[in-house]
Design a protein around this nucleic acid. Structure first.
Lengths: 342, 342
DNA sequence: ATAGATATAGAAAACCTTTTCTATAATTAT
DNA sequence: ATAATTATAGAAAAGGTTTTCTATATCTAT
């Protein structure tokens, strides 16, 4: 019997000599059924190897025990930590998750989300939502149809559920640490403009002003990396370029993420500098690479896993809430500096 | 109209003044409909913002345009490269994918697969299938119900679709390289027993025998790591231990993956050795970390992305094939050595 | 002008469940 | 002994599509 078509509830009913209603009740245990019939039904289920077709159930109940996770990239360590956090939490509540990669393309992201909505997922979590889609009101529209949580993207006045890092404190702590260590010329290294990098830049500018450090446009390094590896390579190149050309090169550097920091570390070393004696380098994220580098990287711990867990928790709550449309929150996860060898 | 319940095909039919059959035909373009009615229907669809409910469609067509990907871990670089390869390929064919993490637990893996089958996924790809489930015949059973492809796990006589790395050639090339470089005492560092590590061990033993190298049980290092970071830490520790205690410590080392290799690299350095002068280290996988370490790691490129792509390609073919039950293949992806700085 | 073909459209069945509503048998209360 | 309640079970509707089968109007060929 194992081979061939999958058996249905009506096969079970027939074999057990009861109605499909009764079988359904035995499966879901939501209505009294006598022990005798229960046993008959269970035997039949066993014999046929019957498993309920979840599609049919979903269609009628209008819930799928399914969520969608949208990410700009799958193989990025930062994102996969977040995804892991989400998945662990929702898996425990017996949700399965669709994983969709957008390659950072806003239109592809929209298409993905639409596709998931048409598949009746119970909710969608977006990692690094695209600014374009935030501004166009796309997410607000989706938010009214199904539960939506956005991780690490924000804009004032948007009615959506956000889960964010405390980038302000994180950046500030890193900068202060360098200053406390006696660094005089502190630089900042970022990727192309984004929600998170914009915050870091602002904090940096304010910090320079407030703390009487020399602010110099030349100490604000910027790369246009596509992926993690690119980031490391470009970071290495741009730092070496800076060291070579600048009259007063930096002696401290905060990087937008750990990949850039590792790249910078390698660049400084190749330039002949001693880390951390000649230049101190601080990464961001506390990702795996920060612990594998030599010396291990001083970095700002983003608690990426926690970010995912929090988003997932919020999601599960929203799904259970019939008035989910009316609630929206902005949650924040604290960051802290982990001092290691750089 | 945006708010409230989602509109259905019958809403469209009513508004356009036609039958639902006709609307269905317009959507799917699988039956002649006059231009005039087509336009009426499309206007109605537009006006209502109608999108077909994919659950209902799937239920009747018995296909969901959905596959499942099972992995022991989400945040492992090796696996995420494979997943990326799979996803890119199937996404292009308009499949969405469920991602399920098993934490390496065979029973959880079984439960996950069952859950996906009940959700009527069109096929399942398993990365690093559990030996226990291979041996129990579980995969063969699933293979008869829906298309199944196993990546990086194998056992003779099992009727399933496999996609494998050529670990034999990879390991051999690495060992030969070290010998060609004049290394006399070559070691091997592996994690707990698995399909892939067993092959590497066998190749190593044979190689030592065939090439007249001193084989010494003490040069076969073994760790029991849980995750990537563990692996690096334990590799560092075990190598330092070996260097300290061994009378004739190794001067060349092939590692089971790049994380171990980075750990070993750091360990050798901390022990005061110069890499590659005093000891040469070769990793496995050509993962991101191998390019970020300093010096960058010499490693065996596994073409993980290709592994995923090939599995995905096979999967899509199986899905299209009504006789998928009768075909099974063993595909292999070549490996090659990338010589960098260690 | 009529038979046969063709183009277009709708009615109804099917997919597999859950859920509501109705029915019967068994129990309890009067 | 009868009415009212309770426990158990089934019939049928519902969920939103696709698909098969049937019907009509239009066209083509004789």
């Amino acid at each position: 019997m194992e081979v061939g078509k999958r058996s249905t509830i009506s096969d079970v009913a027939k074999l057990a000599g009861v109605s499909i209603t009764t079988v359904s009740r035995v499966i879901n245990d939501n209505y009294p059924v006598s022990e005798r019939t229960k046993k008959k039904v269970n035997t039949a289920i066993e014999e046929l190897g019957f498993r309920p077709n979840l599609l049919a159930r979903s269609l009628i109940q209008d819930k799928t025990q399914t969520i969608g996770i949208i990410t700009p990239s799958i193989e990025n360590l930062f994102f996969s930590e977040v995804i892991k956090g989400i998945d662990t939490f929702v898996d425990d509540k017996d949700y399965r998750s669709f994983l969709c990669s957008t390659e950072g393309n806003p239109d592809k992201e929209k298409a993905m989300i639409d596709s998931l909505v048409n598949r009746s997922v119970d909710g969608i979590i977006v990692i690094d939502p695209r600014t374009k889609n935030i501004k166009s009101g796309f997410y607000e529209g989706i938010s009214k149809r199904i539960p939506l949580v956005l991780i690490n993207g924000f804009n004032e006045g948007i009615m959506c559920n956000f889960v964010l890092n405390d980038d302000v404190t994180g950046t500030l702590t890193a900068l202060r640490h360098l200053k406390d260590q006696g660094r005089k010329r502190i630089g900042l290294l970022l990727g192309r403009k984004s929600y998170s990098y914009d915050i870091k830049e602002n904090v940096y500018r304010t910090f320079c002003q407030d703390s009487g450090l020399d602010f110099d446009e030349a100490n604000l390094l910027r790369i246009q990396a596509g992926n993690s590896l690119d980031a490391a390579k470009q970071a290495k190149a741009i730092l070496m370029d800076h060291l070579e050309k600048s009259q007063h090169p930096i002696d401290g550097l905060v990087c937008g993420n750990d990949f850039m920091a590792v790249g910078a570390l390698n660049g400084a070393r190749e330039f002949g500098l001693n880390v951390p004696a000649d230049i101190q380098i601080i990464g961001f994220d506390n990702s795996l690479v920060s612990q594998l580098s030599y010396p291990p990287l001083t970095t700002v711990d983003h608690h990426m896993n926690e970010l995912g867990t929090l988003a997932a928790k919020r999601m599960v709550n929203l799904i259970g809430d019939p008035d989910f449309k009316d609630h929206w929150t902005k949650l924040s996860v604290a960051t802290n500096l982990i001092v290691r060898g750089t």
